[in-house]
Design a protein around this nucleic acid. Structure first.
Lengths: 134, 134
DNA sequence: GCAACTAGTTGTATTATGCAACTAATATTT
DNA sequence: AAATATTAGTTGCATAATACAACTAGTTGC
């Protein structure tokens, strides 16, 4: 389990385990925005479990790269609503395909008739973890 | 899979996913030394996939905390041989038990009769990853 | 309408990392 | 055997991600 984590290369800065040139936090941010359509920065602090100042700067970077658009919520002008730009959407899709590729390349080391076991096991595990940690 | 990684809280600095007050790199270092009995710093750069300067400072910290002993190799005086101290061994054991506890607390969310599936799936996966990434 | 709260920003400090230049020890070449 | 290469480790930078604290500007509640 620990080996698994390290093998995914989570120490190496500046790129995801899938080899894309983007920091892990940025990648998670992009993925979450894509998943949800729109989020506020405050949402992100909870989703990513990071300090609001950290998220603020994280989003600033993404805005600078023109991957996300920020817009003050008309309902509550304290909040900023984040959405993916065209560019950002492409990045998100690229991330997703490279994630899938990575996963498939791992599965390729496992005999085909055992794939289902891996997937079922992972699903159970993910399901078990998610409620615990929030 | 991505969720899994984030759920383990790998963004939060200063502590492992298991809640121990030690950085992730330090924890990996301790674990590896325990596993192998002794390693050189150069070994660590390969194991952890980190730059030699990073490892140098990492080990300096652990030495300061008196968790590892450093000794110049008599065979090749360029190399430093690292071993766990008494203290370090205790830390390693504490880490291990908290890892096991964490894992069990996750398993507790899964019906008992499916535990084997999770474990088999993980084992397959770990086995598939390890040769790929080194 | 004033006090309390809330979302976000900015300033500062810390930590983990890499790269490049260095030192000292060993290995290789001539 | 001396000169050169290579190797393990250290140190001096620079950078990035993070937290905490103090701040601003909206919103809510009494």
């Amino acid at each position: 389990m620990i080996k698994l984590i390290r093998s995914l290369g989570l120490h190496q800065p500046g790129q995801t385990p899938c080899g894309q040139p983007i920091s892990i936090s940025e990648a998670h941010t992009i993925m979450e925005i894509q998943l949800r359509g729109e989020v506020t920065q405050f949402n992100l602090t909870q989703i990513l479990n990071l300090e609001k100042s950290t998220v603020s700067r994280l989003v600033q970077q993404l805005e600078k790269k023109e991957w996300v658009n920020r817009e003050t919520s008309p309902k509550d002008q304290r909040m900023k609503i984040l959405r993916l730009s065209e560019k950002g959407l492409k990045v998100a899709q690229r991330l997703e395909t490279s994630r899938i590729e990575k996963f498939n390349s791992i599965l390729a080391n496992i005999p085909e008739n055992r794939h289902k076991e891996v997937i079922v096991g992972l699903e159970l595990l993910i399901h078990a973890i998610t409620p615990t940690n929030e």
